[in-house]
Simulated scan of single mutants.
Amino acid sequence: MTTTTTLTQPAPGSHRRSHVVADSITMLNRNLLHMVRYPGLSLFTILGPVVFLLLFVFVFGGTLGAGLPGVDAAGGRAAYLAYVIPGILLVTIAGTGGGTATTVAMDMTEGITARFRTMAISRAAVLAGHVLGNTIQAIIAVVLVLGVGLLVGFRSTAGPMEWLAAFGLVALIAFAITWLTVAMGMQTKSVETASNLPLVLLLLPFIGSGFVPTESMPAGLQWFAEYQPFTLFIETIRGLLLGTPLGWNSVLAVGWCIVIAVAGYVWSIVIYERKSVR
């Protein structure tokens, strides 16, 4: 009697997927180690928003807070602290995006990315490592800045589900912005340019509802401030943490995250493939 043993080979697609996942984890570890070994850039992305928070609350907060609807002069600073926290969190995410563009540009200009292209490493994993690593860094920075806000008196009306939703939205925004800044870092030809290009993202919370209501702005600027994505992000986080009306803000905010992430991904892949054939 003859017994036949059949060996089942893994499907080629599953092998490729496991290869991409393993390479992505390796590249993620590399970026996390880079964050630990070079803490100066990470520290700057946290200290900057903290300085903004303390400056706006304790220097300008009394006056700006008194100008908020339904707030009297006596409670101006406390009201402004609650109002400005969502904007500060978006400044934090945008600031970490600048660090992302800088590290990507360093890898590109120093030839590290070119070396990866000659190795048996998934091309998608090289970019995914940057994105996942810097998304984690952005979330850590947001948590630390929010902790400072709690220390100086910020109090939320959110329940556990609202906090969870706010955390999820912050992670999604950080993921989308990171893809965009990865593309910016790859597009530039020098580290200096890469560090300056994402500064436009830092301006958007200011030209929005992050620090003052959009109703206080001139008509043309008000239209831009109300419909640009950072205002939708800020208003959604504000609604989740403070109970202000959400309306369609949450749906539009998630939609903008998807658009930004897809645009950044496509832009990054196009640049990576173009430079790979040189």
Rank of each mutant, 00 (worst) to 15 (best):
R117G: 00
I121G: 04
A141H: 08
R115L: 11
R117K: 01
R155G: 11
L150S: 10
A165F: 14
A120G: 00
Q137A: 15
L146E: 08
A165Y: 12
L144H: 01
I140N: 01
A138Q: 02
T157D: 10
V145M: 04
L150F: 15
N134A: 12
G149E: 06
I140L: 14
L150N: 07
I136V: 14
G149M: 05
R117T: 00
R123S: 09
T135R: 05
T118K: 00
A124E: 10
G149W: 07
A165T: 15
W163Y: 14
E162D: 15
G168I: 12
L164A: 15
G129Y: 04
R123F: 02
A138H: 01
V131L: 12
A124K: 08
A141R: 04
G168R: 07
G159T: 11
G149A: 12
I136W: 09
L150C: 14
L144F: 04
G168V: 13
L164I: 12
V152C: 05
V152S: 03
L127M: 09
G149L: 05
A125L: 05
L164D: 06
F116H: 13
R117M: 06
V142M: 09
I140H: 02
V152D: 02
A138D: 02
F154L: 11
I121V: 15
V126W: 03
V126T: 12
I139Q: 03
R117H: 02
A124W: 11
F167G: 11
R117L: 12
A128H: 00
A166I: 06
S122G: 07
V148S: 03
T118D: 00
W163M: 11
F154E: 03
P160L: 15
I139V: 15
F167I: 12
G168Q: 08
R115N: 08
E162I: 09
L144V: 14
A120Q: 03
